[in-house]
Amino acid sequence: METLSFLTGNFNQILSLAWVHTLLVSVAVGLAILTGVPIGIAITQSQRAADAVLYIASVIITIPSIALFGLMIPVLSMIGQGIGYMPAIIAVLLYSQLPIIRNTYTAINNVDPALREAARGVGMTAMQRLKMVEIPLAIPVIMAGVRTAVVMNIGVMAIAAYIGAGGLGTLIQRGISQSDPRQLIIGAVSVSLLAIVADFSLLWLQKRLTPKGLAAAV
């Protein structure tokens, strides 16, 4: 009851926290796509590079977020950004690399060799093959990686409230420090809700982006 009245009383604030949360994750994952997809494509050219890159990305993902923030504070302090949204975005960017790079790498590698050969055979350059054949075919799997990254990092971003990043984590943090179960519950539930909504929206987007001919095949 009290939780509900807190919710109605502070609805606008909660919405704006959710908005900031979404924005931070979007910017971070967006940047991760810009780095991860090209890296994923590049490492299809060399098995050794692929092994190394995927290993590093898996190691990064095992570092607890709190520890990662701790590591970044002294480094980013040198440019006056030790706390706030900057370390949060960088952490999410790093965590997103593994699902995005790995899925891109796998998807491009799994393009039917016959199609790759057909693409070479009709006289496409390497860039044209990527743009016209390989990336379109890889889209569903790459998007699945993006979804994993987003859902996972909505949780990470909640913890980043401790270093002052803002977002829905702020409610959880306040709930704990003020021993206020209302804020704690609302914070936790809204983070979960946001993750679910994001997952479904991205699934919809994934279907939209998947080339039509592929949808007919599966």
Partner: peptide, 23 residues
């Protein structure tokens, strides 16, 4: 140039190899 060469040779591969993402 391999690209020019291939554009000027019709190639039908054993596995047909139509691009599934294209009409």
């Amino acid at each position: 140039n391999t690209v020019d060469l291939r554009r000027n040779i019709g190639y039908v591969i054993q596995q047909i190899g139509l691009f599934p993402n294209m009409t």
